[in-house]
Design a protein around this nucleic acid. Sequence first.
DNA 1: TTTATTCGGGAACAATCATTCCCTATTATG
DNA 2: CATAATAGGGAATGATTGTTCCCGAATAAA
Lengths: 184, 184
Amino acid sequence: MDTALDRAVRVFRERGYHATSIGDLTAAMRLATGSVYKAFRDKHAVFLAAFERYTALRQEQTRSAAARGANGREQIRNVLLSYVEHSQGVEGRRGCLVVGSAVELSAHDAMVAARVSTQLATNENFIAGLIRDGQADGSIPRHVAADDTARLMLCITQGMRVVGKARLPLDGIRLVGVAMKLLA
Amino acid sequence: MDTALDRAVRVFRERGYHATSIGDLTAAMRLATGSVYKAFRDKHAVFLAAFERYTALRQEQTRSAAARGANGREQIRNVLLSYVEHSQGVEGRRGCLVVGSAVELSAHDAMVAARVSTQLATNENFIAGLIRDGQADGSIPRHVAADDTARLMLCITQGMRVVGKARLPLDGIRLVGVAMKLLA
DNA sequence: TTTATTCGGGAACAATCATTCCCTATTATG
DNA sequence: CATAATAGGGAATGATTGTTCCCGAATAAA
């Protein structure tokens, strides 16, 4: 079932919610219509489950990217670099379910809107925490405003996914090199 | 007709392409079904016209915001501040057609994808030009990498629209204050 | 072995979609 | 004045949508 959900994640990322029909879903998940409706209440429930699964996976990926850094500053650099990578190539073209949901559904779907907000807040808080870690370990100056910088970095990461979906190439080293000035 | 198209822009921004039915469109544009199909070949053509109109309006708004600045640096500050304003409140919740199109359509609609890319490139080039202007007038240091910084600022602006659509509040002064470090 | 029960599959359904067609005013043309 | 042309309105149409219902096979229980 989890592997079927992974396939659902992929379809929703590629096509969005409204452009994904039950037919697309059953084809991707390799289940018949009846089987999908036996596992989920409706299309919306499939999407919610896919969203949940996607955010869990992405969270794990960014945290493990951060963990590869020796101090707060390097951890942030790794997180940003990881975002650039995921915003590019086939993965970037596939898109981010959080960004897609924010843009396509947030305005008219309270359930999705709530999950999008909490996910964005989680990401922002994670970055803010890394900034404070860096200030504690001496790799980031004390005068950096952790919360404001974290919110701007949230905009940067979400923006990368938009730009990446539009197929503009992103040079990780150069882009992140510039972004690190925010920690000066 | 232009006022009808303005109303179409609004609906597409609020609901996206796929979630907007012809019924929604005729109701908003205050035209009957037949009249819409007499003015446009199909729904896709209405969308393309709305996209064109939206980008023209937005371009004008950003340029006039920039024009209020005395030098390159202040012009960029004004552009960023303008983006924050447009990403917030009722306007922010309405969303950006470029971001929406990039996320919802770019992957499967070559015509839209092309227009999104050129629009993003135009925005980026505009910012890069302002950076170079600032370097010429002495308000921005020469060592700032114009192209890389412009691309990062493109990510920032597009990201603001995502975050704004998700209803996270954005403090223009603080956010732009941090972002201006990129021009140090 | 016989009988329940579960599970996946797919046909059937009503609703909604984008699109076409035709009718009726209104304006322009002779 | 008569008539051709145009523009707008809305019903009809066929395709597609999400959802439900029911069937058949496989497994568990008796």
